[in-house]
């Protein structure tokens, strides 16, 4: 167990090392570009270690525009992006997993074709275009959904966790649950658009996994034993069809995040995408390495967490625990 953890963490450390070198390189390029005088020749290795020390003490510099600490601001914005991704993931899982299972069960039937056609259309549509189109929807329905911003400006919600769905619950004495509902209403459209892509992906993965399971010998055995189809599906197939989807989804994480960042710009949400976009537009280039470190750091930690979780929940992978 211990050696497994060390091996995983080792990988994390090496990747993080490469990332910090990259961030350091970007940071220096910006500095040199902005220096009016000729740069003083200095030892880059010493500078790098100073930079690393700053990173470890959670200091990645301040915004050139408003002198706020970049890490804190970046994380606040990133929390908002994660919230969007999480809501979209939840939303698409609820829709896509049953659809995928159905398609897998009734493989090569009309139902399967219908579901897969919809999924592939979802995969093919460019996400920013869907965003713009979805932004038009409320005006067709008569303005019942907000299309712009994180939440209504009426509510002054102080940042506690950065996750607005949680933060709005802290202000219930002042606004009741209205702030929370307002946030939910603002999330519906962007989350639905992000789900478009996710649904397609999850349907495809679930269908494949379900097909594989239904073809396997133990299911055949179960049929031979004379179990009903319902029992086979719910007792034997589902348990084994769902876990393989999780590591597959992990690979999609960076795609989901970059789609979320695009959608933020379309819907004017205050996430890390808009933050980076605006910072670059106004010449605050130091946000770039900060944003890169936050996003890549998250993906790194998250993938390793998933891997550890997989080992815990999936018997097949547990073998790697004992490998030397």
């Amino acid at each position: 167990m211990l050696s497994f953890l060390i091996r995983r963490l080792n990988l994390l450390v090496i990747t993080a090392f490469i990332l910090t070198i990259l961030a350091f390189a970007i940071d220096r390029t910006i500095l040199i570009h902005h220096q009016t005088k000729a740069p003083i020749a200095q030892d880059y290795i010493l500078q790098y270690f100073a930079y690393l020390w700053d990173l470890l003490s959670a200091n990645i510099g301040h915004s050139a525009l408003n002198h706020q600490p970049l890490l804190q601001r970046g994380l606040t914005f990133f929390a908002s992006t994660l919230e969007l991704c999480f809501v979209a993931l939840l939303f698409s899982s609820i829709i896509a997993i049953p659809l995928g299972l159905l398609a897998g069960l009734f493989r090569n039937t009309k139902l399967d074709y219908a579901i897969m056609t919809i999924a592939i259309i979802g995969l093919a549509l460019p996400v920013f275009w869907v965003g713009v189109m979805a932004g038009l929807l409320p005006s067709v329905w008569g303005d019942i959904l907000p299309v712009d911003g994180n939440m209504s400006l009426v509510y002054d919600v102080p940042v506690v966790t950065g996750f607005l769905l949680i933060d709005t619950l802290f202000v219930t004495p002042q606004y009741g649950l209205f702030a929370f509902f307002d946030r939910v209403a603002h999330l519906i459209l962007p989350a639905a658009v992000l789900s478009f892509f996710l649904i397609a992906e999850i349907v495809r993965l679930t269908r494949h996994s379900m097909t594989m399971v239904m073809r396997s010998n133990y299911i055949q055995t179960a049929y031979a034993k004379g179990f009903s189809r319902t029992k086979i599906v719910f007792v034997h197939a589902l348990n084994n069809a769902l876990p393989p989807i999780i590591p597959q989804l992990r690979l999609q994480l960076s795609t989901i995040l970059s789609f979320a960042m695009t959608i933020e710009i379309v819907f004017n949400l205050n996430g890390i995408g808009t933050w980076l976009y605006n910072s670059l537009k106004s010449g605050d280039y130091h946000a770039l390495p900060a944003g890169m470190l936050i996003i890549t750091g998250f993906i790194l930690i998250f993938s390793i967490a998933i891997e550890i979780m997989m080992v815990i929940i999936s018997p097949i992978r547990r073998g790697s625990l004992y490998a030397n």
Binding site: I144, L145, S152, V154, Y155, Y175, G176, F178, F181, D182, V184, A185, I188
Partner: peptide, 12 residues
């Protein structure tokens, strides 16, 4: 339902 309750008239 949500759109019915997310706009609070007394606040706005």
């Amino acid at each position: 339902t949500l759109s019915g309750c997310y706009q609070n008239k007394t606040l706005t």
